[in-house]
């Protein structure tokens, strides 16, 4: 999928960490003084992808899959062991100021604002760091404050804000310089459902308004479904899938679900597939993907059917299947 228009180009990118290790006990400790044993951990192994300007891409994988390591290589925090990464035409590991001024990385569990001061003071500091003209800064700040509805929060000391409130003002601070590329690492982690939704809406609005390119990692599939047409699934440092979110199910899901409401609510349906849910008159069956049409036809011919729907399995289940197939 490599094209010259790519804003993010990754080719055979690899990161190997050397991790010291030794057995427990005094003898092993003494031995390690003479000869230190290390083990190579292959966090990312030869991944390649391209992202076009304005795309919002979900980067999915279980803990330790290599998502954050990849994001850190793309933002310049980590040197790759081998391979190539280019973002906005820059090699991230060089950490050129022109590059850093055009990107941002938001880490859901990190706080970069001045803890004891209102967020407005930190915003002002970011204005100076990113060399923004005052008029541009004020316009951008006000736009972000309005989009995230944090007008009442930015005057309170950051230490007095809740986790969700802090995340919102953190995002405002990270975007004041209007970055062209956003690396969002678990931006909704630990937030309640309402707050997650607000941040999702905001990311979509920001992408729409400014044409920014977004690479997002999240364990909440709702984030991914709401924001990303395309997903990259990574596991054990390797890419397992790169494509439309909608085609992920077709490729990896081994089954579909059939929801059915019958005239005869007591009819036995065990022969048609695995019953996974019974909600009032509605019964949900799990059937092998290849048998879906046949089972649906049998249901229609054998019973008085009031309603019947065929659905892809929930995306969480599909992702689990992807990981399960890669083990």
């Amino acid at each position: 999928m490599s094209t010259t228009a790519s804003i993010i180009h990754v080719s055979e990118l690899t990161k190997i960490f050397k991790v010291p290790e030794r057995e427990p006990g005094l003898r092993a400790a003494a031995k390690s003084l003479i000869r230190r044993k290390t083990r190579d951990v292959h966090a990312v192994e030869g991944i390649s992808f391209d992202i076009e300007p304005g795309e919002v891409v979900g980067f999915l994988g279980p803990n330790g899959a290599g998502k954050t390591t990849t994001l850190k290589m793309l933002s310049g925090l980590l040197y790759p062991t081998s391979g190539e990464a280019r973002v906005l035409g820059h090699i991230p590991s060089r950490r050129e100021k022109d590059y850093l001024r055009r990107m941002t990385m938001v880490m859901g569990n990190r706080n970069q604002l001045q803890w004891d001061l209102p967020a407005l003071d930190s915003f002002e500091l970011n204005r100076a760091i990113y060399r923004l003209r005052r008029a541009d800064y004020v316009a951008m700040r006000d736009e972000l404050v309005e989009l995230l509805d944090v007008g009442d929060l930015v005057r309170k000391p950051v230490r007095n804000l809740s986790l969700g409130e802090r995340m919102k003002v953190e995002i405002v601070g990270s975007l004041l310089h209007r970055p062209l590329v956003l690396f969002l690492d678990e931006p909704t982690i630990g937030l309640d459902v309402t707050m997650q939704k607000r941040i999702r809406t905001f990311v979509a609005d920001y992408n729409e308004r400014h044409g920014a390119t977004v690479l997002l990692t999240s364990h909440y599939m709702a984030d991914v479904e709401a924001l990303c047409k395309r997903v990259i699934v990574i596991h054990h440092g390797r890419i397992l899938f790169d494509g439309d979110l909608s085609s992920l199910g077709n490729e990896f899901a081994a089954y579909k679900t059939i929801g059915v409401v019958l005239e005869d609510g007591d009819a036995r349906l065990d022969d048609y597939g695995e019953i996974v849910d019974r909600d009032g008159d509605r019964i949900t069956l799990r059937v092998p993907k290849a048998d879906t049409s046949r089972v649906a036809a049998r249901l229609l011919s054998d019973h008085e059917v009031l309603d019947l729907t065929i659905e892809e399995p929930p995306i969480e289940d599909v992702i689990e299947m992807v990981f399960a197939q890669s083990r």
């Binding site: 003209r133 310089h177 209007r178 044409g211």
Partner: peptide, 17 residues
């Protein structure tokens, strides 16, 4: 997408410092 992404203009280096 309503607009193509463009960076904000910058102040001079020394003045900014």
């Amino acid at each position: 997408m309503s607009s193509q992404a463009t960076p904000l203009p910058e102040e001079g280096r020394l003045r900014s410092l």
